[in-house]
């Protein structure tokens, strides 16, 4: 183990670059998958004819495939039908497809958890179905969904490391290159320890933030 060699200024700067790529890819994917997941989950909850069934088939298919396969698919198979994505775009697309499906299920079950009595009360006081959904059900459901959604975001951030197979220059990728600088592998432990701490710091802050949100609601 060579902590001094592994933690040279150049290595730390290089590892930090990788960390920023991880955060960037995770951040964009979180925004996109929350958006698509919200739409898909709500449509499925509202039982819109045809559209709901179509989304159900899509979501069930994606949810039951490994993310690694979806990453390979976006990078290698899409160019064959004329969609050519750069490494970062391919990684974001794959993560968004997968996590949207996961989030849509969280959102659907959150909406379903709201008591039927409330919907009946809202409808009988003159609100339309759409108004009931957006002003009565959704706000309460979203609050309940905070913990599972945040834990899904945490797995998304960790899952960005899978994109190392298509050479996305993220945290693990850069850690591997730094590890390769020493012939005898003496940087392995120090550099991967640091990478682990970086993942932990972000993810733990996320779950602390989620816990605070929960406390405030009750």
């Amino acid at each position: 183990m060579d902590f001094i060699g592994a933690y040279s200024q150049e290595h730390l700067a290089f590892l930090w670059d990788g960390f920023l790529v991880t955060l960037y890819v995770a951040f964009i994917s979180i925004i996109l998958s929350f958006f698509f997941g919200l739409i898909a989950g709500t449509l499925r909850y509202a039982k819109v004819p045809v559209l709901s069934q179509l989304i159900a088939v899509l979501v069930e298919t994606i949810r039951n495939l490994p993310l690694l396969l979806i990453i390979f698919f976006t990078f290698f198979a899409l160019p064959e039908i004329g969609i050519k994505l750069e490494i970062t775009a391919a990684a974001i697309t794959a993560l968004t497809i997968f996590e949207s499906a996961m989030l849509s299920e969280i959102i659907r079950s959150g909406l379903k958890s709201i008591d039927k009595g409330q919907i009946e009360a809202a409808r009988s006081s003159g609100l339309s179905y759409t108004q009931t959904l957006f002003f009565i059900v959704m706000p309460q459901a979203l609050r309940r969904m905070v913990p599972p959604i945040v834990s899904q975001f945490i797995s998304l951030l960790k899952d960005t490391s899978l994109a190392v197979v298509i050479a996305l220059p993220e945290l693990i990728h850069n850690a591997q290159i730094i590890n390769g600088q020493s012939a005898d592998g003496s940087y392995f432990f120090p550099i991967f320890l640091l990478a682990a701490l970086m993942y932990f710091a972000v993810n733990y802050s996320l779950s602390l933030a989620a816990r605070r949100l929960e406390v405030r609601q009750t």
Partner: peptide
């Protein structure tokens, strides 16, 4: 995964 890891 790679040589460095195998050597470790």
């Amino acid at each position: 995964e790679n040589y460095a890891e195998a050597f470790t």
